[in-house]
Each structure stands twice: as structure tokens, then as C-alpha cells.
Amino acid sequence: MSIPGSTLGALNALAGGLFLLTAFAMVATRQTRGCLLLFIYQSLLLAASAFLLAGEYGSSHLVGVGVVNLISKPIVVPLILRRTLSSEIYTRREIDQALNIPASLTIALALAVFSYFLAIPILNSVAPEFRSANVPIGLAGLLLGAYTLAVRREAVPMLIGILAMENGAFFAGISLSRELPLIVELAIASDGLILVFVTGVLVRTIQRRIGSTRVGELASLKEDQALRRQGVT
């Protein structure tokens, strides 16, 4: 009885490691298509971890979480993106991020270490069966998603950064709050889909009006606006 349990635990740890790897790769990738692919892998790993935890602890709720994640993120999100945005957007490469990639990866590494220390007091205060690698890894996923959002300039990778943050929150959450009602899970998932749709529409409007999706360059709303305009003209 204990052997399958520990095997599942080991597999879950593997899923966690790969999850962290996708989060790092997302920081380093320049291509929009690559970013989307990494997000799909990450969501699959999240679903896998939910199934493994469900098997380990016999929780039917987590099976539901896994199924919802399996359907919504890897399948429906790319479909919505494809419908709202032209496929030309995927072929974009980002030439300049706010920071170059080695510096980004160093910061990402620091964030991952930081989230490990952040997770220690949390893990110490819950019952032993809730202690798993999911919490620090999920926290790292959340922080790395936020970091991706902060340094990116292209709209779609920023959107994927937001979704990756949500993945990270869930990756930590599924190990801690296993009895979360399924209706909540469904609502959060559908919320995520509305998120992709609304943001997609917004990006499309930006693309039409401004002719670019490099939203990082939009910086006309500043307090010194008037002064700067004066300098230009």
C-alpha cells in the first residue's frame, strides 16, 4: 500500500520539477509560439499533478480539478486565442525585453530560491500530509509569471504570463486545499476563459488602432506628458 503511494509522490515531485522548468523556460523564450506551447505543457503538468495527488490521497475533488484543467487550458485557451487574434501574432519574436535573457534567468533563479524560503513557514504550519513540493514550486510559478508579465513588451506573452501566474497559484493550492468545491473550480476555469477572450479582444483592438501589439511601448500616460510633448515638438 505504501509503495504505490510513494511512487505517486515521486511522480508528483517529477511533475513539480518539470513545472518549474517550464516556468523558467517561459522567462527565457522569445517566440510567442514557444511561450504558448510552454504554457500548454505547464497546464498539462498541473493536471498531471492534480491526478497524482488525487491518487495518492484518494480525493475525488482533485480528479475534478485535473479534468477541468485538462480541458480548459491546453485546449480551449489556444482555440479562443486563435479565434480572436490573427495567427500572424504567433510568429512574432521579441527582440528586446526590458532585461536580457541571462540577467532575467538570474533574477528568476533568485525568485525561485526566495519562494522556497517563503514556503517554509507555510509548510510548517499545516498537517504533515499537506506538506509537498507543490507549495514552493507553485509559489515560484506565481512569482515567475508575475516577472514574465513585468519584463515582456508583447501583448500575447504578457497574457500568457497572467495565465501562468494562475497556474502557479493552483499548483500550490491543490496540495493545500484539496476539498475546494468543484463548482468553485469550474467557475475559476470559466473565468479564465473570459479573461482570455476579453484580453484577446483588447489586443485585437490595440493591433488595429496602433498597428502593433508591442504594448510595452505604450507610455503616453505619464504625469510629465505635457512637458515631454513640448520637448518633442
Partner: peptide
């Protein structure tokens, strides 16, 4: 207006992700 909406959405949703955890 588009710039404002984009900032609004990204920052609010980033906040929402943190609040979700």
C-alpha cells in the same frame, strides 16, 4: 484609452493571481 485599459487589465489580473493564492 487603449493603453489605460491594457495597464488596468494586466495589473488587476496580476493582482488577482496573487489574491487567488
Amino acid at each position: 484609452a487603449l493603453e489605460a485599459a491594457w495597464k488596468y487589465v494586466t495589473l488587476s489580473l496580476m493582482g488577482a493571481g496573487i489574491a487567488l493564492l
